[in-house]
Design a protein around this nucleic acid. Structure first.
Length: 298
DNA sequence: GACCAGGGTAACT
DNA sequence: AGTTACCATGGT
């Protein structure tokens, strides 16, 4: 039976920061303090109390928390240690960690991450969310739930294989439609077995993923970080590139390879975490100053 | 209407 | 090996 579960005394856990840090796309903001989240073929509501910061998870129960959500939400990782190590690196990193101290890196489904980040290329996050919602409604399965209606699972490869390129374009994925179909085929004919990638070193897993059309180094890094917990990776998108150039390269433009090399030596096994704090800090600041600008104009 | 978004591919030197 | 045009779509 579904109910409510509370996570109390949990530091380094901010629902908004976790969901709005660009790692997950299947959520909706309900109020300032609560979100709906679709994951693991289920729908839950996450609500966080402003002062006590305790988290309520609606539409689940204790055993499901133990079996599913605790792992998904990365509850057992010691973020106190991670943040203190990163904060000691430099002043800016310390600021980023303070700003996003409630971030956790979720352990999401490899197949869903693969398709989601193929869609992500050269798109804004809000639009990525729309595309994924369209695809789920079109090809996923309605989630049977007394409390939460109108939600759909992310389609399996078997469900998605019936999609035509036109179907996918109708979901607004544009030129990425053939990429999605190629991913589908390579999974179904077992040219790539996603579960085997957990066991491979990051570099080998990355090569396999990049044999799929539309999957380059950045997208492969995202999949490996957000689904396979390869925490040493440092996905470098346009935001991270700007932040890194400003911080560690005196503002001059540098190659992706140079940023990767620096991040690997500077952040080591914590590169993935560092990347997430920097992304969240850099992006929220940029969006904030942009908002101020447009307000001044008006 | 140009420019940008959690980039990558293919066709060029 | 290193550049560059182009790729859909929506927002500013």
């Amino acid at each position: 039976m579904k109910n409510v579960v509370m996570l109390g005394h949990l530091d380094h856990f901010d629902v908004r920061q976790i969901l709005e840090s660009g790692q997950v796309f299947r959520f909706e903001k309900i109020t300032e303090q609560s979100y709906m989240l679709v994951a693991k073929q289920k729908v839950i509501k996450l609500a966080q109390h402003e002062e006590s910061s305790s988290v309520m998870i609606y539409n689940t129960n204790i055993s499901e928390l133990d079996e599913v959500w605790s792992h998904y939400l990365d509850i057992d990782t010691n973020y106190a240690e991670i943040t203190s190590t990163l904060s000691a690196k430099d002043e800016y990193m310390a600021k980023a960690v303070t700003f996003g101290r409630g971030i956790r890196i979720l352990k999401q489904d490899p197949w869903e991450m693969l398709i989601s980040f193929i869609i992500s290329q050269n798109k804004a996050i809000s639009h990525i969310k729309e595309c994924i919602k369209n695809i789920s409604m079109q090809f996923g399965t309605p989630i049977e739930d007394e409390e939460c209606k109108g939600y759909y699972t992310f389609p399996t490869p078997e469900q998605l294989k019936d999609a035509t390129e036109e179907d996918l374009r109708a979901c607004k994925v544009g030129f990425r439609a053939p990429y999605i179909l190629d991913a589908c085929h390579k999974i179904l004919n077992e040219e790539i077995v996603l579960n085997e990638l957990y066991l491979l070193p990051a570099e080998e897993a990355k090569e396999k993923l990049m044999s799929i059309k539309g999957v380059g180094p950045k997208i492969a890094d995202c999949i490996l970080l957000f689904a396979y917990s390869k925490m040493e990776l440092f996905p470098t998108d346009v935001w991270i590139k700007r932040v890194m150039e400003g911080l560690y390269f005196e503002g001059r433009e540098v190659k992706l390879a140079e940023i990767q090399k620096f991040a690997k030596s500077y952040f080591g096994d914590l590169a993935g975490y560092a990347q997430q704090y920097l992304f969240f800090y850099g992006r929220e600041n940029a969006l904030f100053t942009e908002k101020i600008k447009t307000k001044e104009k008006a």
